[in-house]
Design a protein around this nucleic acid. Structure first.
Lengths: 205, 205
DNA sequence: AATATGAATGAACGTTCGTTCAGAAACTAC
DNA sequence: GTAGTTTCTGAACGAACGTTCATTCATATT
């Protein structure tokens, strides 16, 4: 009953990860899950709700495990590592769901997309807080709000883009990946600013 | 004539950036461009070709400007900065196109997707070469192929994810963003590896 | 003025879309 | 074995999809 919905959500993620939301038809999904088309509607109200449930379950899971982990960690570096470890490990175990979750909430009803946005905002806020703490701990300087925001999103970029290229065979195991992200971000954060004003002028708009 | 196709491609990017490929209908596009539905077919063979042209023009432009710029730059740091500057500036000026280009080539005919993949592969190769050079220059160590590959993709992640969050008002101007990416990656690359083996055990699978 | 050329159109084609619904099938409880 | 309940299904719905085509329109050439 509940397990069947979970299976439908997973298969739905597999299809939508390949062909996107509008490219995946209810008939495709019925074929993939072994149900009839009409039978699927016993488990959810409509197609749009599928997208919502995948997003809701995914983002809820990732924030829940992070918050539970952070309760026992208080050092800035450990907390940053926990954030990265949690994020990447979740997405490694749910790559199709991840891709669907990256697609945005455009196709959802307004109220549903607001629920998802709130979870994401809270996750972003937690992450920015961790980045702010470690910035202060590493540099001792007063953190600029815009800069913290930018750098947090750069971290997200490194982590979220993984689904587009990573394969263990070609790029090493997950631990190496996590360490690269952690090392890159930590040292990058505390590195002194280096600009190339002379260089920038060389490019024509 | 050619200008009208360019305009159609741009409007197509705008729509597809919002609603994805399958979510954008020929009728939507006709309405957006002011043409009739059938009139659009004077400018391209079919809908799938639209996706191809957006991708081809975009990736061609970005690689062409990069290659032209790299011809006059020989220092590893300058070359890295040029890569980042070129990538981010192009995507800032073509955000909708960028989003479409990130959607992948799943909906294209096989031969067309192969053309796109070849351009992307060459761009990746050039970037990896730059990263390899700077890794050697900064650390003096022999570069591990897998590590270079991973870190190059982390750089791409920081840059490609920008379209999902950046707004000048909230996160500062483009130059600050470019500098953050450059600084983060440069210092992150040469930073010594820091791992948390004790920490990793704290997480349950 | 007549003709040739390419651009643009409305109507229609056959498919496929998400969704519904009356009823069959399967399972429980008495 | 019968009645009640839940699970599932095939057929069908109207709407929207990408694409085609016989025309019309606009412009340029002779």
């Amino acid at each position: 009953m509940k397990a069947k919905l979970e299976e439908i959500l997973h298969q739905s993620s597999r299809l939508m990860a390949k062909k996107a939301y509008h490219g995946t038809s209810m008939r495709d999904l019925a074929c993939q899950t072994g149900h009839s088309v009409s039978g699927l509607y016993n488990y959810f109200k409509n197609k749009e709700e599928l997208l919502y449930l995948i997003n809701y379950n995914g983002f809820s899971a990732i924030t829940d495990t992070l918050n539970r982990t952070l309760e026992t960690m208080h050092g800035p570096q450990e907390r940053l590592y926990a954030l990265i470890y949690n994020h990447i490990h979740y997405f490694m175990a749910h790559r199709d769901e991840m891709k669907v979750m990256m697609m945005g909430t455009q196709e959802m009803a307004l109220e549903k997309s607001r629920v998802i946005r709130e979870i994401k905002d809270k996750y972003t806020q937690t992450s920015q807080e961790i980045v702010r703490e470690i910035y202060q701990a590493e540099t001792g300087a007063a953190p600029d709000k815009k800069e913290i925001s930018r750098k947090t999103f750069l971290l997200f970029g490194m982590m979220n883009w993984i689904f587009g290229w990573y394969s263990p065979k070609e790029h090493g195991d997950t631990e190496a990946l996590i360490n690269d992200v952690y090392t890159t971000f930590l040292h990058g954060l505390s590195g002194e600013k280096t600009s190339f004003p002379a260089c920038a002028g060389l490019f024509k708009k």
